[in-house]
């Protein structure tokens, strides 16, 4: 697992999974459909990505293709030069 992926997973576990031990994190699973994150959760995630990796994420980029799953997020960060 890359450091980037580990950081993202740690953030999600700490902020959204709290205590729900039955919840597993599958990198390809939709974070929304699985009930891990809701609409404000996505915004918190975006703020985390912006501050942790010192990047700017535009409103146009807030789409499922970039943020739906951990895998998508890692790929999206690559397009921002973070890998």
């Amino acid at each position: 697992m890359s450091d980037i992926q580990a950081k993202i997973m740690e953030f999600i576990k700490e902020n959204f999974i709290m205590g729900r031990s039955e919840t597993t994190l599958d990198v390809e699973e939709s974070l929304i459909e699985s009930g891990i994150m809701d609409s404000t959760g996505v915004l918190e995630l975006v703020e985390f990505l912006e501050s942790t990796f010192s990047i700017q994420i535009d409103d146009e980029e807030l789409i499922p293709e970039n943020l739906e799953s951990i895998k998508n997020i890692v790929e999206f960060l690559k397009t921002k030069g973070i890998s």
């Binding site: 929304i32 959760g41 996505v42």
Partner: peptide, 8 residues
């Protein structure tokens, strides 16, 4: 049900 991605 995807308001998590308001653009959608």
């Amino acid at each position: 049900n995807r308001f998590a991605f308001p653009n959608s």
